[in-house]
Design a protein around this nucleic acid. Structure first.
Lengths: 351, 351
DNA sequence: CTGAAAGCGCTTACAG
DNA sequence: CTGAAAGCGCTTACAG
């Protein structure tokens, strides 16, 4: 059906391997006469030649296919942004991306990946232990892999510096005159230390309070059950306890929590940021559509995907710079209407 | 590196082609002695054999790879759900999915797809014209393709029955005692007829009003510039004009519009659904996180992806049932707090 | 500087 | 019922 190297060879009367070399821009093609090269290129164009990538991969013993392994998408939107980055980096370097759900059977999946002789794999998972079924076989076959949005000590794994993000939020609250800050996080039935980002963010809060509110002995944090976020009574009790403790600046572990809190505040006629300012985490769409617009800490998910992918490719191609091992991307605080300026603080010093 | 058929053949002392047939469950493998078969299977397991899919595709002249072509993800979350469906259907039938951005250069992309000898391609695009750079080459090579969330007259293309969804929303508003319904849509600088779903939804509204509000001469609809959704003054003027016209039931073209409208209503101290009920479209996450919870029309995006993919595979494998040509999946109205029960309507008749 | 050959890992028609 | 051979479309080491 499709036109092959053999067709081009027959059509031009030039040896098949010369044709291959010209089409691949192989250095040795330079030694051919220019008109020979042009003849080949012209024929390829005319007949609409498309190199068969599978055959090429087999001949080359290198597959130019990458695998992106993740769980179901469509609920947490940032997964899409991560995938954008992965696709872009893969394309930029001539790779094709295959996608796979980790769900059903990791054992079967790893076989499928090996079957495609993938050059590398990028994992978007939540806990490092999910890698277990993969590592042995991947390492045995010398296939590099990396995690995105999750650090991977000793290996490739890039995520954002969430702790620094929360610290900067605490700092902003202090500098805009907030008297008492609180941190709200969700209990998702796993210990906070088990999910990396939960851990990091919480840590960032405690460190931030220590640094910017040195007079505070015990940082105020509050945990609630996110599965009851639609339970008005329950949520109202959460709100009450924040107000009772006079928190006037609240940082939430995620935008979703912040929005839930904002909603119950609206219902109780306590518009943010009148009684308290509110800051979420993630820069998600819901932070834009909430009212008032939610301040949030922005993560560059696309870049995360790109850097991980680039590192995996580097490793696959033997250019092991190792630079991305333990990469932490910066985040930035986006202040919007949900944060009030409580007291003008004039900072001293020049500049 | 990886173990090959040749290795297995050497290890077991059995002819390479018999090994291949046993491993593929080829009918002819049945004629081999059971112990021979077991010997092969055991060796494959012991050595950790993984068939090289590329080599297999080349031998078979059929590639078991599908392509999913879409634009950037991460803003409209339902794209992720569509992709879930596509992956699932592909996996279920033994295919591997590659993903591609349509963005940069359709011409280059189609060459890449042909290079991989994809068995079929699934497009998630917004307008049928975006297919133009692809159809000729795809059809020439006899590669089937389909569109998801967009109908494709004469070909494979599945979407939801949005018109029926809006009609049912109008009906619900009537039956719950709303006196005057309005439809709100966004001007995105393209004519409404150019984006299929915009067209269908609008049509559904007009048909619904004709059917359930036969006394209404001219259905009330209102168009606003979504790029100004954060402009409070502008949005307030939209709200005012709805109120002035006494609309007590508002259906929006999308959840995003509905949320924007809801926000400006909150700001103006006009809590939905007191003055007017509100219904969005899409069943998106923001419909859950808005306050009050937004009623919406739910689309099954995952199923959309699955059906399209299944049809494309059918076509690729020659089982051309053609059943999915012009497929319209049902949608369902999800009534939540944003819709009030204005008057109890007792329906007559039995059952 | 160029051509004929062997090889990649599989599948499948073709003999015995 | 089984084995030796040719073929898929490429790449690359090896002779002239």
């Amino acid at each position: 059906m499709a036109v092959t190297l053999k067709d081009l060879s027959r059509e031009t009367g030039i040896n098949l391997c010369s044709v291959s070399q010209v089409l691949n821009n192989h250095p040795r093609a330079q030694s051919l006469r220019p008109e020979t090269r042009e003849k080949i290129l012209a024929a390829a164009k005319r007949l609409g030649y498309n190199k068969n990538q599978m055959a090429a991969s087999i001949g080359k013993k290198h597959s130019y296919v990458l695998a992106f392994v993740h769980s179901d998408m469509g609920t947490v939107e940032y997964m899409g942004r991560i995938q954008n980055g992965v696709i872009k980096a893969a394309n930029a370097r001539g790779y094709t991306l295959t996608v796979h759900h980790i769900g059903d059977s990791p054992e079967k999946l790893v076989h499928k990946l090996l079957g495609w002789r993938v050059a590398g794999v990028i994992f978007h998972i939540f806990q490092l232990e999910q890698l277990t079924p993969f590592v042995r076989l991947l390492e045995k076959e010398n296939i590099p892999y990396g995690t995105v949005n999750l650090s991977n000590p000793g290996g490739i794994g890039v995520t954002t510096d969430d702790a620094a993000g929360v610290r900067s939020a605490v700092r902003h609250l202090r500098e805009s005159g907030h008297k008492k800050v609180a941190y709200v996080y969700a209990d998702s039935k796993v210990k906070i230390s088990e999910i990396e980002f939960k851990h990091r963010r919480f840590q960032g809060f405690e460190d931030g309070v220590r640094e910017y509110y040195p007079e505070v002995k015990k940082p105020l944090s509050l945990c609630f059950d996110y599965s009851r976020a639609q339970d008005l009574k329950y949520m109202t009790s959460i709100l009450r306890s924040l107000l009772k403790k006079n928190a006037d600046g609240v940082i939430c572990e995620s935008d979703a929590l912040a929005v839930a809190l904002n909603n119950v505040a609206i219902y109780n006629n306590c518009m943010v940021p009148n009684r308290f300012s509110l800051i979420g985490f993630g820069g998600s769409m819901i932070s834009e559509t909430s009212f008032p617009m939610l301040s949030t800490i922005i993560q560059d998910f696309e870049k995360m995907g790109m850097i991980t992918t680039d590192s995996v490719i580097d490793s696959a191609e033997g250019k092991n710079t190792g630079s991305a091992a333990g990469n932490l991307l910066p985040v930035s605080l986006l202040v919007r209407e949900s944060v009030a300026e409580r007291i003008k603080v004039i900072r001293k010093g020049v500049k």
